[in-house]
Design a protein around this nucleic acid. Structure first.
Lengths: 200, 200
DNA sequence: TGCTAACAAGTAAGCACTTACATACTTACT
DNA sequence: AGTAAGTATGTAAGTGCTTACTTGTTAGCA
């Protein structure tokens, strides 16, 4: 018999293995057998901890929806009133996090495409709140006459879109980036274009 | 017995039914049975025209990779040397096409996520060539001193990213757009920010 | 009359989930 | 402190349904 773990720790390991597989192959593309093998247990153990494969998937989405790292760090930088700094920080953080662990982006896309019931919650916690944060920042800038008059939400989505698209191209479609275009330089260019574009 | 069609016409109908299903549910999520039902034939008929489900999928990707409408219309507008006009035209065309038929975008994403072998070809024909077109346009503008010095490919991807992200949000994640933000107005705002951002 | 489009009815493999049972750890009683 | 009972963790081996693909046969058209 295999090593005996606490229910909590075993559950954690199942989730860990499942995240990797679901993010790589999607819900439908992942076999419960594979999850069991990756977690080095029998399939029955999965079903002791989760009633169905779908419930395991939902637990993962809920867990991934709960973290707040990006927004927290963005809020810190925002206090400095350095527009270029805010854009650079948000952009870089998004890229750093996604490159360090692409599973979140893939899970988000898979869950939306596969029409999972919690896809909306996932989107709201990960994307919508980021839009709102940047939108509020831009709205303030408009009021304070640093930026010209425009729809702040659309503008915010525009900037986030530049970054997201960069991530899609490189992380999903596997485009290699030439040596001269590091994330820092790309974000710098996006921030520069965008900021010059919204300033008075 | 069912109506008798030419092999060509029957094949076309199978592909038509399969496109709808693959784009909605992905390769793994689509059953050959469903395709047969949607095309109103027996499963065996699919296998008379395509050796495997995968071959049918590949045929669809190849077909969808072959059309050139967007690039052709973009090239026409580009001759006018109206920068804002070019950006608006490219952006609007992307949105119009995707809203009229979201299957292409979904197929592109699904094929990349599911790791289909032809995903690269698909990406190059639909996305990379658009990047290159806009990149060349911007490069010329830089040479002609209308735009400031920058990496034209990164800039091009930035603008495309704004539009792609708009489409992702609305077509994939189902965000409703408020009545005042029509595609025209959104594209106008993106083009305005971007153009002001890259001009000298 | 021969060729090809068409189908009904398989078939073998795959899959999510279950069952019956074994083994380790915890607890409580003497 | 020793140990038996009870409980939680674990597995091996299914079970029945689904699914990609096949086979044997029929029927429309040149």
């Amino acid at each position: 018999m295999k090593e005996r773990l606490s229910a909590q720790e075993r559950r954690r390991r199942i989730v860990e293995a499942a995240v990797e597989l679901f993010s790589r192959k999607g819900f439908r593309g992942t076999r419960t057998r594979e999850i069991a093998e990756a977690a080095d247990i029998s399939e029955a153990m999965i079903y002791r901890h989760f009633a169905t494969k779908r419930e395991l998937y939902s637990a993962i989405i809920e867990a991934k929806s709960a973290t707040e790292e990006l927004l927290a760090s963005a809020a810190t930088v925002a206090q400095r009133k350095d527009d270029a700094g805010v854009l650079r920080a948000v952009g870089l953080k998004m890229i750093e996090q996604t490159e360090a662990d692409p599973s979140l982006m893939r899970l988000l896309l898979f869950s939306a495409l596969e029409g999972h019931e919690l896809s909306d919650i996932f989107f709201e916690s990960r994307v919508k709140r980021l839009h709102e944060f940047l939108s509020n920042y831009i709205r303030k800038g408009i009021k304070e006459k640093r930026f010209r008059s425009m729809d702040p939400l659309i503008a915010a989505r525009g900037f986030i879109g530049m970054i997201v698209h960069y991530l899609l191209i490189h992380e999903l479609f596997g485009v290699k980036r030439p040596p001269r275009s590091s994330p820092e330089e790309v974000v710098e260019q996006f921030a520069s274009i965008f900021l010059k574009g919204i300033e008075r």
